[in-house]
């Protein structure tokens, strides 16, 4: 479905973000892309829809070579690729519905988007998606009135509104608490399975990645150093990706942190219910 061949990105400052990266994503596979900060995860997924121009190498979506298309064609390619962002990247002053409908911008002419007169089919789909992500009651709220988890749900609905053939997901949980993180990851992965949608998910939380994805690609300093199923991600592999560290100790600690956080969230919920 997606094929990346010998992708290299060198920024104008001379920093080499990606070196000779190649991999395939078959239909319906959810890939977790892990690696330390600055390993080039964000750059890699942005090279796929050319929000960042790669320096060399090829990217194919189906049999279309994305890295060669012109400006007009690039729009048509981008609308086939949904993207979900770290800080949600919703247009804060627009309503939830407008944010979801913005997923159709690549399909409609300017006058329709300017007058907010989208075809009925697009509006039906948007209502259905908002229902699916559990935001039916917030259609006309402004995006900046929502909580973090709700915003990311709008982000997911926007990406799906595009009818994508591929999802690019950039640190979907980085600004969320542990419990919401799991809910959001679960939602993304469920939707991908429902639709047979392939996805690349950048994620720095290794445990979360292992819990949800089909395959893990590890990036270190712009090179792929691990590629395999989540079970194969052992201490040796983690050391190859992140450098040496006592992984077992960290894992126990992380489990405890997650448990604490879940308990705290429960407690808060109960306290709020009590107050109300």
């Amino acid at each position: 479905m997606l094929r990346v061949e010998a992708l290299t990105k060198r920024y104008k400052t001379g920093d080499k973000a990606l070196t000779d990266v190649s991999f395939d994503v078959p239909s319906g596979q959810v890939v977790g892309l892990i690696g330390p900060s600055g390993a080039g995860k964000s750059t890699l997924i942005r090279c796929v829809n050319r929000l960042v121009e790669p320096s060399s190498g090829k990217v194919f979506l189906g049999d279309r070579e994305i890295t060669r298309v012109g400006r007009g064609e690039l729009r048509r390619v981008r609308r086939r690729i949904g993207m979900i962002f770290q800080e949600y990247a919703l247009v804060e002053r627009l309503t939830v519905m407008e944010n979801v409908l913005s997923g159709r911008l690549g399909y409609v002419p300017f006058w329709r988007s300017f007058l907010r007169r989208f075809p009925q089919g697009d509006v039906d789909k948007a209502f259905a998606l908002l229902d699916r992500v559990g935001l039916s009651d917030h259609v006309d709220k402004r995006a900046d009135a929502l909580s973090g988890g709700q915003r990311q749900r709008v982000g997911i609905a926007r990406a799906l509104e595009q009818d994508p053939e591929l999802l690019l997901v950039d640190e979907p949980t980085a600004s969320l608490d542990p419990k919401t993180s799991r809910q959001i990851m679960r939602l993304i992965c469920e939707i991908c399975r429902e639709r047979g949608l392939p996805a690349i998910i950048n994620i720095h939380d290794v445990l979360l990645a292992k819990m949800f994805v089909d395959r893990i690609v590890g990036l270190r300093a712009g090179r792929i150093v691990f590629d395999g199923p989540p079970d194969a991600l052992d201490e040796e592999a983690l050391t190859a990706i992140y450098g040496s560290e006592d992984w077992n100790a960290m894992r126990k600690e992380a489990d405890e942190t997650a448990k604490d956080a879940a308990e705290a969230a429960d407690f808060e919920a109960r306290a709020q219910a009590g107050a109300a």
């Binding site: 929000l51 609308r79 690729i81 993207m83 247009v91 913005s102 911008l105 690549g106 399909y107 595009q162």
Partner: peptide
């Protein structure tokens, strides 16, 4: 950027 990514 998010708008650009939708093909706008």
């Amino acid at each position: 950027e998010a708008m650009r990514a939708t093909g706008a």
